[in-house]
Nucleic acid binder design. Structure first.
Lengths: 236, 236
DNA sequence: TATAGATTTTTTATCGAAAATAATGTCAGA
DNA sequence: TCTGACATTATTTTCGATAAAAAATCTATA
């Protein structure tokens, strides 16, 4: 019974029909890492992965290689791979670079964005804020829409490289956000940052946007605390 | 007769003794691309690569996957890989992002660098300028030392992520530089930019450093012209 | 001549076995 | 009990074969 966990060839969903096996595994593993289903720092055994994703070694190896360059997996020659660890140091580094990159992206986007961009941005904002809080997949869905909002914000920046990099840093940052206890998420849902950012963007106030983004991406104490807690119980 | 083009296991050089085959191929291919021995935009046939690097498919595939994320190779599902094309658009994008990243790196480095950093930077500068112009491998060697100088300049920035990204962008930028005709290189050897940058860095004049780097990384007409020439004779 | 369809050839993607290496366990001797 | 050599086991890395897909070629027909 092959292809257990994977779509039975050519799914109707957005993941793509003629996608290569390695590509599918890459996407799955990336999600599993970003959503902490694969524990930070944990060893990635080929045998385990082979069962989990029901593929051979070649696609696995390929996916892992790509994830190494993306910074979500670390690999040591001849002693395998592990999920990129979560450390306080790394979080500071990550936050600091993401801040700069987001500022850069938003600056250019606000400068260059046209009507279409404005409309899409507003739409993304509504889509995020009008989400029914009673849904069972609230947290998951809010994450998606939150990401979409930030993506819409910078989408007009005009630089493929910048967009790609920004997305990678955003993803990595969200992995850190996720380790925070539940009540932190609650407050995130209701913060006023995004409304303010939206208004400044529509008003084409570049300087205000930069300032807002700068404070929006913060190294919150709660997360640093969560990192410390995590560090105390070392992984396999 | 296996391992033709590769070191016969455990070389004394810096490339590492216990390096994995895939790792060696990755390094070789990266160089071949950056130094234009693999033509921009050209198709990368597995059979050809297998002969060229004398390895099986697994290490090849792994290397290519990594290079895709690094931006030196592009791959389409089920129709293989090709060397990342060189285009005018991409050059502008690359230059613009590299400029920002270099400015960021140099800023932090100058702010944080200590005596050791100063010393190393000066040493790197001398090493670059005192190179014997009569050497047969002048161009190649100057490139190496030029890269080393820029690396020394930012080495104190304190962010692994930033350093990695900077290096990737630097490499990609140099690939574009290389397509310029020979006489452009000549003038690059004798420019005064680096001396000025060195002085400003040692004097801890952050603002001046930023300004200097900003103009140092320019989209020169000569290169744009070279790109256009290249675009007229399409590749295989 | 142009074109659609079928056929062949070329090329890529995947698997499982085998080789190479690292990790672990065992045991004799100090 | 500790240490180091040796053997055993676990894991990673690589190869070659095979399946799947895409590209190229050919052919018959309008």
């Amino acid at each position: 019974m092959p292809r257990r966990s994977l779509a039975p060839r050519a799914s109707a969903a957005g993941d793509g029909p003629s996608m290569t096996l390695a590509g599918q595994v890459l996407a799955l593993m990336r999600n599993d890492i970003l959503e902490l289903r694969l524990e930070p720092g944990s060893k990635l055994l080929f045998e385990t992965l082979r069962e989990k994703y029901d593929v051979g070694l070649s696609p696995l190896r390929e996916s892992l290689s790509r994830l190494v360059v993306e910074g979500l997996v670390v690999g040591e020659d001849r002693r395998g791979f592990r999920v990129a660890p979560i450390t306080e140091e790394d979080f500071y580094d990550l936050a600091s670079l993401r801040r700069e990159i987001e500022i850069l992206s938003v600056t250019r986007s606000v400068e260059r964005g046209r009507d279409m961009w404005e409309a899409e941005l507003s739409r993304a904002f509504r889509h995020m804020t009008e989400l029914d809080a009673k849904r069972s997949d609230y947290k998951q869905e809010w994450s998606t829409r939150h990401q979409a909002f930030h993506e819409a914000l910078v989408s007009a920046c005009g630089s493929p490289r910048l967009l790609l990099l920004r997305r990678q840093l955003f993803d990595q940052f969200m992995r850190y956000q996720r380790i925070a206890p539940r009540h932190v998420w609650r407050s995130a849902f209701h913060d006023t940052d995004h409304k303010t950012i939206l208004d400044a963007a529509i008003a084409r106030d570049v300087e205000k946007c930069r300032a807002l983004i700068k404070t929006h991406i913060k190294v919150s104490d709660v997360i640093v605390e969560a990192i410390r807690v995590l560090a105390d119980k070392p992984v396999a």
